[in-house]
Design a protein around this nucleic acid. Structure first.
Lengths: 113, 113
DNA sequence: GGATATATATCGAGCCTCGATATATTCTCG
DNA sequence: CGAGAATATATCGAGGCTCGATATATATCC
């Protein structure tokens, strides 16, 4: 997040995307991302907790609440305003980047399916 | 490229995209990426040469030819078939990811402009 | 009883970006 | 004419980020 070109990595993007429908806990985020990508993206646990920590520090997500289930804490995260805004901006940026390539690949052998 | 989720980073994506219109040399790639993103993305030289080397090893780009200009070598890179295919696939993946977020953000406060 | 799913957390290896640094020529503006 | 920017390639170290392994614990399914 402190990078000069602060574009989200794929795991980061789908972590934020998973929180669009409301607060979710770590494992739920992994499952949501997997569903959203038809099983393609499996966010590694090490990636998840590291990314959540960094994103919380950066103010993109916040701890919503904590539940106790079977003696273990389950922490729910939610999108902050900044996180929501960044996610929207990133989606537009990706759409433009994709369109740039797809628009130039007509009749030139680049896979379109 | 040896990663499990081999999604391209933004610099990598635009390096490949810059080569769609034909072979180009290092500095030309940086300028092309800058133009393609309306000045937003400025690929750092360290990023460029490191990425080109890795991508050449991975078979995504190849050295097209070398020119001598004022005693200095200027190396032109071109997309390989694998590179072209990967670029097309990445563009589609990004389009889908973007659509997932944009499709869910109607009337929910996520920036759309 | 073993495997799989649910659930959180940490660590090291290694990948990748970035800015700095180095080197060299050409062009432009004052 | 001299300073600075643009053109051009190349390397290095710091630090950011992902990933798989490892650890821990319960519940369920076979």
């Amino acid at each position: 997040m402190t990078r000069k070109n602060p574009s989200l990595t794929e795991p980061q993007f789908f972590i934020l995307a998973a929180l669009m429908d409301g607060p979710l806990h770590g494992y739920g985020i992994i499952k949501a991302a997997e569903t959203a990508t038809d099983g393609r993206l499996r966010i590694a646990v090490g990636t998840l907790y590291g990314a959540l920590e960094r994103m919380e520090r950066a103010g993109l997500v916040a701890t919503d609440h904590e539940e106790m289930v079977d003696g273990r804490a389950r922490r729910y995260y939610r999108l902050t305003e900044d996180g929501t805004e960044l996610l929207g901006r990133e989606a537009l940026r990706m759409q433009q980047a994709a369109a740039f390539v797809i628009g130039r690949s007509r009749n030139r052998g680049v896979a379109e399916a």
